[in-house]
């Protein structure tokens, strides 16, 4: 179910001395089934933007349409919207509250008014999708490790069976291994369910490998919105706003500048490896030819 944002602005504490314009005339179309990366420097308005998508924040001006319906209309059912657009907050582990992991994941579907059986089925599926083993189901969520807690929190949202899943910095504060595990799990989830996923991050390295569209935010506005390769080509503009292309892109550029004839529109380590190997293959073929 597509989401359309039409000139959305958001001002915090409007009409006071502390007013902050967090979003400024943002227009976006989020079609079904995309895997989107939302990137921006600290304070660029990413979290503010995603909280509009499920109606937690109300736009100061502009409109948002979910599946063609205006979400600010009087008769629009916000609760249904929240079940369709799942939002996993930054540091979601701080929202856990139940005595055991399984009941915590049940909270979302229970709020949707489903039968007990359906609720438990969904919780089970969600925990499996989030990569939590059965042995943890009846432990206290507070006894788990940071990465596991985060998976449980993600499962808590997945159990609502959203059509659009938004994750606000799901890797913040995790070690490299925890980070890779979570990202792999999300990418697997995308492949298995085909739902729309939006991944908020401020590291290009994190998302370059997975997403098929990148939206770059700067000071509350959309600065770039394109395929990853196109976005990374503009690495100078990214640097101006405190971001950067993935490190491999810089390596490939440096190689190219030293006279090695390699492609530079590369943004994952795997691609880079392939490109360098094929460069060597070409080189030795040329030598043999000579």
């Amino acid at each position: 179910m597509p989401i359309i944002l039409d000139k959305v602005s958001h001002i915090y504490e409007a009409d006071t001395a502390m007013a902050v314009t967090a979003l400024n005339n943002v227009s976006l179309v989020i079609p079904d089934g995309q895997f989107i990366g939302l990137i921006g420097h600290t304070g660029s308005g990413k979290s503010t933007l995603v909280q509009h998508l499920n109606g937690l924040l109300k736009a100061t001006s502009g409109s948002i349409y979910f599946n063609g319906e205006d979400i600010d209309a009087e008769d629009f059912d916000k609760k249904r919207l929240r079940s369709k657009v799942g939002l996993v907050f930054q540091y979601p582990e701080y929202q856990l509250f139940e005595a055991d992991v399984f009941s915590d994941v049940c909270f979302g579907p229970k709020n949707l008014g489903l039968t007990k059986k359906e609720v438990e089925l969904r919780a089970y599926e969600a925990l499996k999708l989030a990569g939590i083993e059965d042995e943890y189901f009846y432990q206290s969520p507070f006894d788990l490790s940071g990465g596991q807690k985060r998976r449980v929190a993600i499962a808590g949202v997945l159990a609502m069976k959203p059509d659009v899943l938004i994750l606000d910095e799901p890797t913040a504060g995790l070690d490299p291994r925890g980070r890779d595990e979570i990202l792999e799990q999300i990418s697997k989830l995308k492949k298995e369910t085909g739902i729309t996923i939006m991944l908020v991050s401020h590291s290009m390295d994190d998302i370059a490998k997975y997403v098929d569209r990148i939206i770059v935010m700067n000071k509350g506005s959309v600065m770039l919105d394109d395929k990853p390769t196109e976005v990374f080509k503009q690495y100078e503009r990214l640097e101006e706003v405190g971001l950067a292309a993935p490190q491999v892109t810089y390596i490939m550029k440096a190689l190219h500048d030293r006279g090695y004839d390699v492609r530079i529109d590369i943004n994952t380590i795997d691609e880079a490896k392939k490109e360098i190997m094929s460069y060597f293959a070409k080189l030795s073929a040329a030598k043999r030819g000579r």
């Binding site: 609760k79 939002l87 996993v88 929202q95 909270f107 709020n111």
Partner: peptide, 26 residues
């Protein structure tokens, strides 16, 4: 936290007194 629970369908406004009190646990 309120927003995070609302994203999971929590409802802090409607219902009678007991239901409201219960909804505060999360």
């Amino acid at each position: 936290i309120m927003k995070a629970q609302m994203a999971r369908g929590a409802d802090f406004e409607s219902g009678n007194f007991i239901k409201k009190a219960k909804s505060l646990i999360p």
